[in-house]
Amino acid sequence: MENMNKKEYQRYAEQRVPKPTFLKNNTMAFVVGGVICVLGQFIRNWLVENGLDDKAVAAGTAIILVFLGALLTGLGVYDKIGKVGGAGSLVPITGFSNAVVSPAMEFKTEGLIFGVAAKMFVIAGPVLVYGVGGSIIVGILHLLLKKG
């Protein structure tokens, strides 16, 4: 190894890793993400037909999608969808549901407090922190700009 320094080795090692199949990944993310969104649209239309107002439709659609994500996680299906769909199943709200339910299931063995409750947000926590934090910053900017 004397004839190679650390930087050279890291570059050499990187070259040995097969490149991700971008085209296939993007296509599958588009298809899977698209299917989830179309499903969401169907749920939305169905709720509108049943006479719910705008606010209730938005909440109802999210609730049903979150439930479906949780159900498919519990049935051991969502990780298989995620393996194929990648970002397509990660970004929609069903992916958020999967990110909360999967650690909650996994850490059941450590009990309801230190297991399920404490570990539930281990993946989704950063999304919540920066999502809510970001929305507060945008809100403050909006308020300032509107006043100015």
């Binding site: 890793v17 519990g74 969502y78 990780d79 298989k80 393996k83 999967s102 650690p103 299931m105 996994e106």
Partner: peptide
């Protein structure tokens, strides 16, 4: 997996390496 990586049912993709 649970010590080093993600919960089993989490829908992530694994790297080729």
């Amino acid at each position: 997996e649970r010590q080093f990586r993600f919960p089993l049912e989490y829908g992530s993709q694994r790297n080729f390496s």
